[in-house]
């Protein structure tokens, strides 16, 4: 089986028009098999794009993409609880859950498990599969050895297994909105300041070293994860799905580069050169894969 390329949900607060145009281009030009669509980070953002959802989904499907709907990751207040319950009632599309509240609501019906859920071992995966999970995207921090074990477990369970290979790593979520805090506001009166940072708000250390990226309640890495050099190994392990995350970059080009790598049309060296030519906004990292500091970049023969 050839590996599938997937496009994860847009985690930043892009303007509705920009999102619509982005997905139109993805539908027409990007060689991705599956597109995850939906607001994962902030329940307050959803009204802006809800009206465009049916059109975007239809456009992607006309472009031959499978559309999977992604859920919120934080479910606390009544509005979010209701949103999750409604989300779990969707039967027109596959859905991906990113919060345990969804596991309650879904009550045994088919679903996918997103990368913000804590699925670190075969027993947890086995339990979830027994309750309807058909597909899992592993947490971004798991190292190579764990990916291998999970791929094997997923295969035995007949569950799809996916790994993020491109884009910033989600490092933490919180109940507090750090975008609002940066602008001396609170979550309730944020005035959607996160919209001004379509690739997140950079945080640097007091020495001026780039460090983290704030996206509302989410904290991401500064670096973009890049596992293009590890794809062969993952294919051998039995990983069948490779996720790229939308950034402020030419994502059609990024998709093309990864699709060529997965299909074996380009080797690791050519792939690295093509990624470098895109002049991405942040350095690339693969430390988590090596069981090391996530921000670091290791070469093909590094331990």
């Amino acid at each position: 089986m050839t590996g599938k390329l997937t496009l994860g949900p847009i985690v930043y607060h892009w303007e509705a028009e920009e999102k619509r145009d982005f997905y139109a281009r993805i539908a027409d030009e990007a060689p991705v098999d599956t597109v995850y669509v939906g607001e994962v980070i902030c329940s307050k953002r959803t009204p802006f794009f809800d009206a465009h959802m049916p059109e975007v989904i239809e456009r992607l499907e006309r472009g031959g993409k499978q559309v999977v709907l992604a859920s919120l990751s934080e479910v606390v207040i009544r509005r979010e609880r209701n949103m999750m319950a409604d989300f779990c009632a969707i039967d027109s599309h596959e859905i991906e859950l990113n919060n345990t509240a969804g596991l309650f609501d879904i009550d045994g019906r088919a679903h996918r498990i997103g990368p913000l859920m804590n699925v670190y071992n075969e027993r947890t995966l086995g339990w979830l599969a027994g309750k309807g999970a058909s597909h899992v995207t592993l947490p971004v921090e798991v190292p190579r050895a764990v990916v291998g074990e999970m791929a094997r477990a997923a295969d035995a369970l007949g569950v799809g297994c996916e790994v993020q290979v491109f884009g910033r790593a989600s490092l933490a979520v919180s109940a507090r909105c750090y975008h609002a805090r940066a602008h001396k506001r609170t979550k309730d009166n944020c005035q959607f300041v996160c919209e001004k940072d379509p690739d997140g708000m950079p945080l640097s250390t007091v020495n001026g070293q780039s460090f983290l990226t704030v996206n509302g309640i989410q904290t991401l890495s500064h670096s973009y994860v890049d596992l293009s050099g590890e794809i062969d190994e993952m294919v051998n392990m039995g990983i069948g799905h490779f996720r790229i995350m939308p950034q402020q970059a030419d994502m059609v080009a990024v998709a093309g580069i990864y699709a060529d790598r997965i299909a074996g049309r380009r080797d690791g060296e050519e792939t690295a050169a093509r990624l470098a030519a895109l002049k991405l906004a942040a350095p690339l990292s693969n430390g988590f894969w090596h069981g090391r500091e996530g921000h670091r970049r290791f070469g093909p023969r590094a331990a």
Binding site: E141, A172, S221, E293, H295
Partner: peptide, 13 residues
């Protein structure tokens, strides 16, 4: 400050 069980900041560093 982060949601417990959902923080990889230490691992990143």
């Amino acid at each position: 400050l982060m949601v417990e069980g959902r923080c990889s900041l230490t691992n990143y560093v």
